[in-house]
Write a protein that binds this DNA or RNA. Sequence first.
DNA 1: TAGATTGTTAATCGATTAACAATC
DNA 2: TAGATTGTTAATCGATTAACAATC
Lengths: 236, 236
Amino acid sequence: MSVNGGPTGGSGASDGAHAAANRYVPEATVARLATYFRVLGSFGENGTTTVSSDELATAAGVNSAMLRKDLSFLGSYGIRGVGYDVDTLTGQIARALGLTVHRSVVLVGVGNLGQALAGYAGFGSRGFHIAALLDADPARVGTCIRGLVVRDIAALADVVHEEGITIAVLATPAAVAQDVCDQLVAAGITSILNFAPVVLSVPPHVDVRKVDLAAELQILSFHESRKHAMPRPVAR
Amino acid sequence: MSVNGGPTGGSGASDGAHAAANRYVPEATVARLATYFRVLGSFGENGTTTVSSDELATAAGVNSAMLRKDLSFLGSYGIRGVGYDVDTLTGQIARALGLTVHRSVVLVGVGNLGQALAGYAGFGSRGFHIAALLDADPARVGTCIRGLVVRDIAALADVVHEEGITIAVLATPAAVAQDVCDQLVAAGITSILNFAPVVLSVPPHVDVRKVDLAAELQILSFHESRKHAMPRPVAR
DNA sequence: TAGATTGTTAATCGATTAACAATC
DNA sequence: TAGATTGTTAATCGATTAACAATC
């Protein structure tokens, strides 16, 4: 399945005014829905009940035409001349993102980065519960991190089945990431958030998203070079 | 400037066989160059001296036509019928990404995630040096993390000027991220890697890339919903 | 009604891919 | 030369944007 991109399969079926339950949603739109969801949360906390596409787009850092197009994939939940009801829209985006069902994740690899992820408050506050921590290092197994006992990677299949987990966060060293990934897939995991700087091979039914911290800096470095580069002489 | 996207400005100028120093490079290509660079590193460590576009593309998880097109933006460094020399190509990508000059970064916010980033070996091994750690919390200032003393955020301008830093990693709480961002920009930072779940406002000459961990899980959640969704009855 | 704002269309733009001539 | 593989073209595909009719 797609690795940080590629279209989201769906029907192209007909639809009534609100019958948008399962429409095709472009991958680029899905990524932005997560941003809209977060920004809507801030509006809600402020007590704002209604937002226009212009206000929401500005807060999310996108063009308002794009915002309206994105939202149109979910259905027609705005009111012309008025805007969007914050609560209604929040709920619809939550539904679209699958956040209305409880989602537990397993975190594999509690080294430097894994420990930080285990303690990252942003997961909990935004709909995800880290249900288990796993590691292969006997020195780490049995230790307690943020109230969770680190279990042996051998318990993976048990943990996944007991808790009904389908999403894993992979934060192991690069050298063992593919091996652990294979174990995750064998245990029934179908979505992986990969922090190890390797390209994972997975079967087609498994989604992988990768976060490559050094690559992000390299991309910034590319733009830095351009900013400070001497203009080239024009070709004669 | 672009926020995780948007084209990279450049000339469209003519070029000889190897005169690719400053050509326009699409943003999507820049992101993949970082992957090619890492994969080429592995080939080099293995002692491989030559790779074909097919081998490199497979290892990088992309189509070989796309790989060749990506590389063509850098110039013409392959040999028809043979492939690419690993060292030559590695060097050319390093040059394109601006990794041939030393790049120091400043990390602001040494909380849970910031501490992990400070200790993340992947930065150092892939061309970046964390030159300073800053925090606003007096309880953290003066502590030592991975051999670096945490300094007060008030020292930002000094640190940036002393070390010639233009890239910052922002790992503060969301509530203060925009304020700290403004300080970074005022101090002369022109590239920011943002881990705080907020949309940052920056002037046009500043690049921001964001890493939103919860958003990544939400995107996976979206696809999970689709995988397990009941097929909708066909409209009558 | 007049003003405001949505939802959608159509144009544009950028990215991906297959195919193949060039050439090692 | 024959075989292999690059670099580039052109077609396709998907994403973004401006503009505006629909409608609250």
